[in-house]
Design a protein around this nucleic acid. Structure first.
Length: 404
DNA sequence: AGATAAATAT
DNA sequence: GATATTTATC
C-alpha cells in the first residue's frame, strides 16, 4: 500500500503512527506530519531511540486519553470528532475494545468460501488454495484456515442461524436434540492419506530395491502406516472421523442468505453476478442446495488489515541529511506542521525528544504499578495493525522494539 | 466466533 | 529454516 494511503488509514483509526524513512526529506516530513503522524524518523535508529520510543508512544496515548476525557466532561466541541470507523464503539465509552482485524464471516463470505471449497474439491482444499480462489484482498490465510477448521468440525453457524438459535433457546423450551441440518460433508478435509501412502509406497520401493538397507528405517516410517494403531503415532489426522452426529447444522450447508444481513451496520448493496451461473449444477449438491445467493458483501472491509507485514512504518525519500538546521527550521516555524504535530525530530535531536523521558527505570505518570506486559497489551489495543509482539517472556524492551 | 499459539508436515 | 496445514487454546 502506498505510504500515504497507509498513513491516512492509520490516522483515521486513531493509531499513533510513526513514519520511518531511509533518507530524510523535508517535504515528505512535512506532509507526513500534516497528515497526522506523530513522528518522522530516519533510519537507522539510535539505540537510545529504540529504547525509549515506547515511552513516547505511551505518553502520547495517555495524553490523548486525558484530553478526550476532558473534552467529554467539558462538553467541548472537540468531543465529537468521531473517527469515521469508530462510531458504534464510542457510544459505550466503557470498554473500547478494538477488534482490529476481526473478520465477520457473513453469509455471503461463507458462500464464497464454500464456493471455493467446492471448486477446489477434495484434493487441494487447503487454506492457501481457498484463499486464492476466493480472491478477496485483505483476507488472510490464517483467517481462512480458522474458518475452515470450524467448518470441518461442523462448528460454525451462519449469523442468521445464530440469531435464530439464540431466539429459540431464549424461549425456554429446551428441545434437547437439535437435528443435524445436513449430513456430514466431506469437502474440505485435510489431505487424505497420500503422504502416508507414499511413505508406505516408498518403503515398498525400498524393499524392492534392497531390503538389507531399508530394514532399519522401515519400522520408523511405518509409524505412519494406516492401519497400525498399536504404534503410537504423533500425527495422524487423516484417520480421524468427523463426528457427523454433532451439532445442529452443518456449516457446509448453507440455509439462506437474506438481503439484509449486513453485519456491522454497513449496508453494502451489491448485486452479485458471480453466482448467476450456479443454477442446475449446484442443485444436486447436498451442501449447496437450498442456497439462495444473496448480495455479495466484500468482507467487512474497513478494518481487516491483513497479515503481519503491514505496519505503518515505511518510506523512502531522497533528500538532505537531517541536520539541526532543519530541525530549527521546523521548530521555529509556525507552519501547520508544528500545530498538528507535537514533535518533530531527527536523529540529531534526540535530546529534544527525550529531555523528559528517563531511562527504563523511570516511571511514566500512570505506570507505577503496571507491568510491562500490561503496557504491551495496551499497546496492542492501540490498534496497531500488528503489535507483533511474540511471546516475550522476559525479553527486554529494546529487544522487542528492535525486532519491530 | 474468530484469532492466535502450538504442533506437525512439507 | 521457511512455509503451510492442522490442532489446541484463548
Amino acid at each position: 500500500m502506498p505510504t500515504f494511503d497507509l498513513l491516512a488509514q492509520a490516522v483515521a483509526l486513531d493509531i499513533i503512527s510513526l513514519v520511518v524513512c531511509d533518507d530524510y526529506n523535508e517535504l515528505e516530513a512535512k506532509k507526513t506530519l500534516d497528515m497526522g503522524a506523530y513522528l518522522y524518523l530516519k533510519k537507522p535508529f539510535d539505540e537510545n531511540l529504540v529504547t525509549f520510543l515506547w515511552q513516547f508512544v505511551w505518553r502520547k496515548r495517555i495524553q490523548k486519553e486525558k484530553t478526550k476525557e476532558g473534552s467529554i466532561a467539558d462538553n467541548d466541541m472537540g468531543g465529537e470528532n468521531e473517527e469515521q470507523f469508530e462510531k458504534k464503539k464510542d457510544v459505550s465509552n466503557t470498554e473500547v475494545v478494538r477488534r482490529k482485524d476481526y473478520t465477520k464471516w457473513t453469509d455471503d463470505l461463507h458462500i464464497k468460501f464454500m464456493k471455493a471449497v467446492k471448486q477446489l474439491g477434495e484434493g487441494r482444499c487447503y487454506p492457501k488454495e481457498i484463499l486464492h480462489v476466493m480472491n478477496l484482498p485483505g483476507l488472510t490465510r490464517m483467517q481462512v484456515a480458522s474458518h475452515l477448521q470450524r467448518c470441518r468440525r461442523n462448528n460454525w453457524r451462519s449469523p442468521i442461524e445464530r440469531k435464530n438459535i439464540r431466539r429459540q433457546s431464549g424461549q425456554g423450551s429446551s428441545s434437547v436434540s437439535h437435528e443435524p441440518k445436513s449430513s456430514f460433508q466431506k469437502i474440505g478435509r485435510m489431505p487424505n492419506l497420500q503422504a502416508n501412502v507414499s511413505n508406505q509406497q516408498r518403503n515398498e520401493d525400498q524393499i524392492q530395491r534392497g531390503p538389507e538397507f531399508s530394514l532399519p528405517t522401515l519400522n520408523i516410517n511405518n509409524i505412519f502406516a494406516q492401519g497400525d494403531l498399536s504404534i503410537q503415532q504423533p500425527y495422524r489426522p487423516q484417520l480421524k472421523v468427523q463426528p457427523h452426529y454433532l451439532g445442529i447444522g452443518n456449516p457446509f450447508y448453507y440455509p439462506f442468505s437474506s438481503a439484509q444481513n449486513n453485519i456491522g451496520g454497513e449496508l453494502k448493496q451489491q448485486h452479485n453476478p458471480i453466482f448467476g451461473m450456479l443454477g442446475s449444477q449446484e442443485q444436486e449438491d447436498p451442501i449447496m442446495k437450498n442456497t439462495h445467493y444473496g448480495p455479495n458483501s466484500v468482507l467487512n472491509s474497513e478494518d481487516h488489515h491483513s497479515e503481519k507485514e503491514h505496519n505503518f512504518v515505511l518510506n523512502v525519500a531522497k533528500g538532505a541529511t537531517n541536520t539541526n538546521a532543519n530541525f530549527q527550521q521546523y521548530q521555529g516555524s509556525n507552519s501547520c506542521v508544528m500545530e498538528n504535530c507535537d514533535v518533530y525530530f531527527s536523529l540529531n535531536n534526540l535530546d529534544y525528544l527525550f529531555q523528559n523521558l528517563g531511562p527504563l527505570g523511570a516511571n511514566l505518570p500512570n505506570e507505577q504499578d503496571s507491568e510491562f506486559d500490561q503496557v504491551y497489551s495496551d499497546d496492542q489495543n492501540l490498534g496497531s495493525p500488528d503489535a507483533n509482539l511474540p511471546n516475550e517472556q522476559g525479553s527486554e524492551f529494546d529487544q522487542v522494539y528492535s525486532d519491530d
